[in-house]
């Protein structure tokens, strides 16, 4: 019996039962842009960067189960235009100043912007006022760069069993908070050894006093663009 497969951008893509479109593509080394997806965590499909067209409908590739015979459109001008617009909205909602950000070169948001050829922010910058939380002795929280992917929320809840992080508010007022009456990270049970300290895809959760120790040329996305690193887990790079 032939293995189940779908058509991804016109080419057959085999998959195992239970796999999502994202998982099947990743195994095959095919890049589908994504931001909130992480292979170690249950997908939630919130960032919408991985939106593909499956049998003519827009769906999240990270949550949509692969189906035999499904026709999926991924790398098309229409979808990449929409993804670029999503990125532009994320960039203007926060304060993403790559030139002085220590996550530059290792940042998923920045790497996607390069990959999808985002050349301008397009929209008017919000310039929100978000003070950093430097209360913890080992970890800095820079809320300016949060993209609400909830990876820290999921890691702290599902792996660390601490529930340190959560999203609060609605709509454009939604923001990341920590689980302490004072609102300060130092007053939670958070530790540098927590899983949540190492999953942030952008520059929000940062180990203190480490910024810029990795030279330009040795950072994750200096070595290869993100589209050529399919299946490599964040943090697995060897560096220089």
């Amino acid at each position: 019996m032939n293995a189940a497969s779908l058509l991804l951008d016109g080419l057959p893509l085999p998959f195992s039962p239970g796999q999502t479109i994202m998982e099947a593509a990743t195994v095959a080394g095919i890049f589908i842009p994504h931001l909130c997806h992480h292979p170690e965590f249950k997908p939630q499909g919130s960032c919408k960067l991985c939106t593909v067209k499956a049998n003519g409908r827009y769906v999240s590739a990270c949550t949509m189960p692969a189906k035999d015979g499904m026709e999926v459109e991924n790398n098309s001008p229409d979808l990449n235009d929409k993804r670029r617009t999503l990125l532009q909205m994320l960039f203007v909602e926060g304060n993403h100043f790559c030139p002085s950000c220590e996550k530059s070169g290792n940042c998923l948001l920045q790497a996607l912007a390069y990959e999808l050829e985002m050349l301008t922010p397009h929209f008017t910058q919000f310039y929100p006022d978000r003070p950093v939380d430097a209360s913890h002795p080992d970890v800095l929280l820079d809320f300016n760069r949060c993209v609400l992917c909830e990876l820290c929320v999921r890691a702290s809840r599902d792996v660390d069993r601490k529930n340190v992080f959560a999203l609060s508010g609605r709509g454009i007022g939604k923001h990341l908070i920590v689980n302490a009456e004072s609102g300060r990270l130092a007053d939670t049970g958070f530790s540098l050894s927590d899983k949540a300290a190492h999953v942030c895809p952008v520059g929000v959760i940062l180990e203190k006093r480490q910024g810029f120790k990795e030279p330009i040329g040795c950072r994750r996305y200096d070595l290869q663009p993100i589209g050529m690193q399919v299946g490599q887990r964040p943090g697995s790079e060897e560096g220089c």
Binding site: S100, V132, G211, F212
Partner: peptide, 14 residues
């Protein structure tokens, strides 16, 4: 002001 000190050499050169 209010930025972490290790960011400063990269930021101020701008």
């Amino acid at each position: 002001q209010g930025r972490p000190y290790w960011e400063v050499p990269v930021m101020v050169q701008r």
